[in-house]
């Protein structure tokens, strides 16, 4: 649905994006991840047709971004980093205006506005001036304008920045609800967000692609072992020995109150581990995957320069 090939953007001598190639499948939510000034916003601006690229190709919804700009713009909903709002308009009149410039046909305009308001939960502020609504509502309104023309692709630049925790949860729920119906690409540097919302990531640093793929794929390619953290009601040395007896186990380590268990990819020792716990009357307080530790993965990819 979104595809780039050798995409490069230079601002004078500064290379913002360099030879970036990636692919996002239809109906998936994909995260564009990277430190500040990695080129995330520039990439998104090129995809939305706001900026031309210096070299390379990009296509969105089957249209070439540079050759068929209007068709691309028609199939994209875009929330820039600074939510583009007119403070002196009401929520309703703003959405009506966006529907018009996104070429929603006249008779369907009202329906489109109602739908966007409904999805983003803006009903209570519809007739208020934008300058008088809260930050959270402004962010929702920004998302509402991005989906007003029911685009195939939605591009969100840091959609949860500056929101309070409750609002962040709400916006993430909202984005997750787009899955299947829209293809979503969102940029962020909040790793928890990626873990919660995204099917996969494109990680860039200094304009270059560091890694891309689903979270599981990445975890597999960057660590040799799969594994879990286990927190039990007891942690004595005898317990470690219990797990060491399991076939295929590679590593048994106590880290604080948790035990870290690892085994090679392709095996699944979760069931045997649980069985061991039950057989030995050990109560499992918590159990989570080691491989999904995205912070670790991210730091290894970005700082270690482990190009794929």
């Amino acid at each position: 649905m979104i595809e780039t090939e050798q995409l490069t953007k230079k601002y004078g001598d500064l290379v913002a994006v360099k030879d970036l190639s990636f692919k996002v499948e239809e109906g998936k939510i994909w995260g564009l991840l990277g430190p500040n000034a990695a080129g995330k916003t520039t990439t998104m601006r090129i995809l939305t047709g706001y900026l031309p690229a210096t070299a390379g190709r990009a296509s969105v919804a089957g249209y070439d971004v540079f050759e068929q700009a209007e068709a691309v713009k028609q199939s994209i909903g875009y929330l820039p980093e600074n939510v583009p709002l007119y403070p002196e308009m009401t929520v309703d009149s703003y959405l009506g205006f966006v529907a018009e410039i996104k070429k929603v046909p006249g008779p369907k305009k009202k329906e489109a506005v109602n739908r966007a308001v409904e999805i983003t939960g803006l009903n209570s502020v519809r007739r208020r001036l934008i300058k008088n609504i809260s930050r959270g509502f402004k962010q929702r309104l920004g998302i509402a304008q991005a989906l007003i023309h029911n685009p195939k692709v939605i591009i969100l630049d840091e959609p949860t920045i500056g929101l309070d925790p409750a609002q962040i949860v709400e916006i993430r729920q909202l984005i997750k609800s787009f899955k299947g119906e829209h293809t979503v690409m969102l940029s962020t540097h909040i790793l928890a967000e990626v873990k919660e919302v995204c099917d996969g990531v494109v990680i860039i640093n200094e304009g270059k692609l560091m890694a891309s793929g689903s979270l599981d794929e990445l975890a597999q390619s960057f660590s040799q072992n799969d594994g879990i953290f286990l927190r039990l009601d007891r942690t004595d040395s005898g317990i470690q020995d219990l797990f060491k007896q399991l076939p295929e186990i590679k590593k048994v380590e106590v880290e604080g109150s948790e035990i870290r268990l690892e085994w090679p990819w392709g095996q699944n020792l979760r069931t045997p581990i649980i069985k061991t716990c039950l057989d030995n009357n050990l109560e499992i307080k918590e159990m989570r995957s080691v491989a999904m530790n995205i912070e670790e993965l991210y730091l290894r990819i970005v700082s270690g320069g482990m190009e794929q």
Binding site: I76, P84, Q145
Partner: peptide
């Protein structure tokens, strides 16, 4: 200044 230029220029007009 308001960043709304980005909205206009990414619209199909």
């Amino acid at each position: 200044k308001m960043g709304t230029e980005e909205l206009l220029l990414t619209s199909p007009i």
